[in-house]
Design a protein around this nucleic acid. Sequence first.
DNA 1: ACACTGTGAGTTTTT
DNA 2: CTCACAGTGT
Length: 641
Amino acid sequence: MTHLDALNARQLEAALHTEGPLLIIAGAGAGKTKTITSRIIHLIVEKGVPPRQILAVTFTNKAADEMRERVRSLVPAGRSLPLIATFHAFGVRVLREFHKEAGLPRAFSIWDRDDSARAIKRAQDGLDDESMTPRQILSAISHAKSRSLSPEEYEESARSARAKSITRIWRVYESSLASEGALDFDDILLRTHSLLRAQAAVREKLQKRFSHITIDEYQDTNAVQYEIISFLSGEKKNVCVVGDGDQNIYSWRGADLEYLLDFERAYPGTKIVTLEQNYRSTRTILSAANGIIEKNVRRKPKNLFTENETGEAIEMYGARNEMDEAWFVATTIQTLIGSGVRANKIAVLYRENFQSRVLEEALLHFGIPYRVLGTKFFERKEVKDVLSYVRAARNPLSRLDIARAAGAPPRGIGKVTLEKMFSGAALSGAAAKKVAHFRESLSKISSAIDTFPASEAVRAAIEISGIERMYPQGEASPSGEAGERLENIRELVNLATRYDYEQPPQGIEKLLEEAALQSDQDELPAADSQEADAVSLMTVHASKGLEFDAIFVTGLEQGLFPSLREGAPSSDAVRDPEEERRLFYVALTRARKRLFLSYADERMRYGTREHTIPSEFLSDLDPRLVRHANPGSDYGENIIT
DNA sequence: ACACTGTGAGTTTTT
DNA sequence: CTCACAGTGT
């Protein structure tokens, strides 16, 4: 029973409840992941549940990776492993397996936000409406889809002129998806949902396959996901959900807290376990966090406590500008490292990605190793270019990929020729020749995919496409932008080797799936020992579920954090005014021992200096917990103008 | 067909 | 400031 030894009474109670619905309300740092992994191990080891019958669903890849790692280390050698995946990855697997029943092509493509935005723009082209950006339209559509609305239902429910034109574009967008054999992120869930609803045979098969289901971060569940779970759980209702209402920070993505609050109603006989002891943070940090979240009205009161020591005061630094702030962060980190704190136990958090830039400059200046999470490897142009060849070869319906591939590198196939190509119109002699050559390239790549291991196939795509010609190397060694792009292309081959063990087409399938669904790069590049011990920079959203000894929360200014985005009349999503506060709460509760908060009086934005006002959150902190870093002494010297 | 060049526009947060 | 894009010139 070693896997249960380390649990407290409540955690144990949760881990031992193995049959019937279970709701675990787990405060920040209360050992949520530990509890559910122990429970999974318990199911396997003590209850004799075959690992393959266990499904654990998470919302982010990071969470899935972490849970998989923990489970792997505890499952007795030789046993298979449970299926641990994000909702989207799970959906893709189901849809690939049952593509026929789902009415999808074997090798359907997945469009990321960028692909979708392009398609929206194309859809918008013929229509008059220029008042909305593709992004705005896309987010309206996405929000509607996450509520499981059809275009008709959406138009009916919104009834505005704006909704009307969105619907019109939406219909065109849907027909592009269909004709290109593609799904967007929302479709992955929607199609899984409708497959389960419409096909009893598939539904029953999956219910049988997965006897026990666990959902992590349940507070982030949206309508479609909720229904997928209830289809999967069937009669047995062996569903274990874990969540914390105070950490719901994805309502803009359609996540609805109601599903957490209503779980016991939806699943009668639910056992509820509340985990309130925090093992992560010092008393000081936890008091501050509790004080912040208590200001929210719409929440279930929770009494999160800790037996940890009081620890150090929270340090606050009011900077003159964003460079001064970055300097403060860098010098403080240097001091921390000097006093023995490992760099990889330190994280710098911010509300918006653009803030990382100055921070990077300062860290670089001090020679502090760092890594930025959220640099999306698979969204880089050169990587997408290579993959567009692979995807076009796999899915010949994909105009988007074909168009992209045709232009990288330029080969004399432009807009007009592409149109003719797609419509089957006659081509002039010269154009016909170019097109024939291009088609031949794709079919060579296609057969490489079918015969060689994944990395060989990718290498073939790179060679046949001649994509490297776009980034000519100077006399000097790989440096500058072209060199970096070539390195990324090489890195892609490297990544593909991880799937070389698969039978030929499947390795590529998996690579494409990863490319479509894996957004952060966090685990991708082989972390050599140097890189491994680095300070992490990331958005607060990206930090959810992680913990560090020392946390810096930067840019605490009105309009930035909390973000200003007043219930924009043009937006469909109803904004929850308490969400920013929850986000701040998430930021604070990442810290184990030290917490540093900072703001700048002036910040560069849109290329101009702007005066700012300290965040309202700061005045909500109990002053007894805070110590102000003296602007006159250590850091005041470092102001750059 | 495409490279170049000014213009204008825009930044949440993630699968 | 930076980036995508429309429009111009080759």
